[in-house]
Amino acid sequence: MSLLEVENLRTHFISRDIDNQIRVAKALNDVSFRLEAGKVLGFVGETGAGKSLTAQSICGLLRPPARIVGGSVLFDGQDLIEMPQEELNALRGDQIAMVVQNPRTSLDPLTRIGDQLVRIHQAHTGGPVTASRGRALDMMQAVGIPDPANRSNAWPHELSGGMAQRVLIAMALMNNPKLLIADEPTTGLDVTVQAQILDLMKGLTERFGMAMIIITHDLGIVAHYSDEIAVMFAGTIVESGPVREVFAKPDHPYTRSLIASTPEKLQIGGGAKLGGQPPDLYNLPSGCPLRTRCTFAEDVCATPPTRKQIGGGHYSVCHFSGALPEGGGPQ
């Protein structure tokens, strides 16, 4: 059994507009993936593809008008969707921890960082406060915060962006989570600091045996810091598999275009890219959501493609899986 098994997860935004019409944005459509303990899974895709929404759906952090309308999320054998809210709250911050973008806005501005770490440990694990304090100092040490005893008295506004992200990671680690979800953990940080944070997180997963989900738009991060990759487009995982395999033999036209768009592969003046507008989630095209942008699209693409296995653990959702010319992108 995998640590996390997500099957056919569907999340929609259901709202009424100013004309009193019900509008449904199909933001996640049959998202399925598995994550083994101790592994790192990288989610990539463009803005609005549903990367962060997948994480929020798993953690029960959706707010109206977003609503899970189908599927299951099994974490350690428990169904998180069926779970009562209080139990899920207890699980979150304990066995499942999150690190988000803009670390400074995620810290309580009126509490010293040491106390915030103690607070989250007390809320979930309990025990004597002195034990929590000790653990807080250990975790600050583990994430490379110099002089933890002194720094634990610092206020959030006194921290630099990189330091605040370290505090947030320390906070995520306080209760020894089995799963760490990092949503754009280094966006907004400088490249030289990004390297520090990513090295740190990767090292911690190995040291504590955590599984990790990294959500990012940067293929370079996924290429070097994750074991598996899931490529999202319009609320669907269009391709997934072991990182090396997917980068070496990308199957789905969308994955190919993403890889072709990276600075390393990009040919300036190389002709039309698979660009265009992201599809309107309120009004998705029938069948394959990519077909309006895809140069390989044919009539059959108006029917929904199925998920096909094309290698060990390597899946692609395309009518032409395995049949498209090798290496040829939509360039």
Binding site: T192, D218, L219, G220, V222, A223, H224, V243, R244, F247
Partner: peptide
């Protein structure tokens, strides 16, 4: 700065 850049290629 050059070395901090992560090429989108796991084999690099």
């Amino acid at each position: 700065l050059l070395s901090a850049h992560l090429p989108a290629d796991p084999a690099a």
